[in-house]
Design a protein around this nucleic acid. Structure first.
Length: 420
RNA sequence: GGAGGGAUCGCAUAGUGGUCUAGUGCGCCCGCCUGCUAAGCGGGUAAGGGGUGUAUAGCCCCUUCGAGGGUUCGAAUCCCUCUCCCUCCGCCA
């Protein structure tokens, strides 16, 4: 959520930033509604002050109101009720409009309508040349039996899959290894959260109300399956005022992610690249806005570190204003090259959400014991998305004899060094 | 799923319709006192919003006693719904 003060005080700046994102923001309507809200609040406050004053007087003089007092207070009460009803209506409209506005992009974000304006900003070592044709991951998996796409479809429908044997073990090794690196070397605290949340948590992260049709929802208990651990980690300190000296808070969680993926049939349908349930290790930080400089870069390095240690060719893209996610002020995508399918796979999306999510989740902190509370800044990034790393490993470490060599860091986790 | 108990200021508690502008204790902060420390004494101690200010300064006001609704001239207090916690019964990995 954007700050209403900022919109009212600097409407042209806010409008331009949102236009850069491809929005047509109702700034004038918001400013007007807020002015109306203030008038009603003021009027209601004065009436309540009057009512409190008279009530206090009645109490102090024995508790028996005069008929004149009852008549006056009855009419004051009626006016208060009318004003409150008007105020509720105006505030609901204002709230709905504010909740539908995305975050403001940072000045550093490339301006452009879509992914064609994204900019490659860093690259790892180039993909190695091979003198044989790399088998696409789905063919390799089919031949070795480590994915069972048909079984997934049979029990759960399209875009579900089953990992078997060394495929399942490889994914488990990856998640364990990633968590260990983040907790032991990068300073994150491991969290094992619920995978179903209330609407409040989903709204705070920015997924509701706009993106309900991308989520799985349980009607009976009104719970939503998380599309990413970002949703739960963002809500960890909701409603709290974090004590001085506790920031930054760095969390990491390994969870399944559930997405309805109602994209056009036929797009990315082969294999396990785009599916309705997948696993991901997610990094998340709460930071003091004054100390947030460089935090996104550090988180990017934490993600790149994993790609480097695995020996995967990677590149980093700065997403354009038209391509960053709803809650984000600045996003970088980390991609790895997969030589069998010959494409760059997005394995991490790293965002600085500034105070946007903190406003929605009401997560604040105090810089000093006697200082007023302020909203924290939140940042998130995958570290990393597991099925796509599995794909990248199957294709990057394929040998001419049709086997796949397990990257060295994972071998103590897998207990084997080759597939099959 | 069923029965009962509970949620009040950082913590603990008081408060059964008006004098609650929520008391008291602890904790914390600032003084005073004091060889030092402790004790003692005095004062302070939340969040959000509005008004007035150049002001993130003061001052004034409103809201918040788990959340939302209702009764009433007036609600922490009475009624209804919901959420969470605790005890027990049933079911269950």
């Amino acid at each position: 959520m954007l700050s209403i003060e900022q919109i009212v005080n600097d409407p042209d700046f806010v409008r331009q930033k949102l236009v850069d994102r491809g929005e047509t923001p109702p700034i004038d309507e918001i400013v007007q509604l807020d002015a109306g809200r203030r008038t009603l609040v003021h009027e209601g406050d004065e009436l309540r002050a009057r009512r409190n004053e008279v009530s206090r007087g009645i109490g102090q003089s024995g508790g028996k109101p005069s008929p004149g007092q009852i008549a006056e207070m009855r009419s004051v009460g009626d006016r208060i009720r009318t004003i409150e009803a008007d105020q509720d209506e105006i505030q609901q409209k204002l709230h709905d409009l504010l909740m539908a506005l995305p975050n403001l992009p940072r000045d550093a974000v490339p301006v452009g309508p879509d992914e064609d304006s994204n900019v490659i900003v860093r690259e790892g070592s180039p993909p190695t040349d091979r003198d044989f044709d790399v088998e696409p991951n789905w063919d390799f998996a089919d031949r070795t039996g480590i994915f069972d796409l048909a079984a997934g479809a049979k029990m759960s429908g399209a875009r579900f899959y089953v990992l078997k044997g060394k495929g399942a073990a490889l994914q488990r090794a990856l998640s364990d290894w990633m968590l260990d690196v983040h907790t032991r070397e990068h300073g994150y605290i491991e969290i094992a959260p619920p995978y179903m949340v209330r609407s409040e948590a989903m709204t705070a992260a920015g997924n509701l109300p706009k993106f309900a049709d991308e989520l799985f929802h349980d009607e009976e208990d009104d719970l939503w399956l998380i599309p990413t651990a970002e949703v739960v980690l963002n809500y960890l300190h909701s409603g709290e005022i974090i004590e001085p000296g506790k920031l930054p808070l760095k969390y990491v969680a390994h969870t399944p992610c559930f997405r309805r993926e109602r994209t056009a049939a036929g797009r990315d349908t082969r294999g396990i690249k785009r599916v309705r349930q997948f696993e991901k290790v997610e990094m998340f930080q709460f930071v003091d806005p004054e100390q947030s400089e460089g935090v996104l870069d550090a988180m990017i390095d934490d993600a790149i570190d994993l790609c480097e240690r695995l020996g995967l060719p990677w590149r980093l893209l700065a997403l354009a204003t038209g391509d960053i996610s709803f809650q984000s002020a600045q996003t970088y995508d980390l991609e790895v090259w997969s030589p069998g399918i010959e494409e760059w796979l997005e394995v991490s999306s790293l965002s600085d959400c500034t105070d946007f999510q903190a406003r929605r989740s009401n997560t604040r902190f105090r810089r000093q014991p006697d200082a007023g509370p302020r909203f924290v800044h939140s940042l998130n990034g995958s570290g990393l998305a597991l099925p796509r790393i599995v794909i990248a490993i199957l294709e990057n470490f394929q040998q001419p004899d049709g086997t796949v060599t397990i990257p060295e860091p994972l071998r103590s986790y897998t207990g084997f060094d080759s597939i099959p």
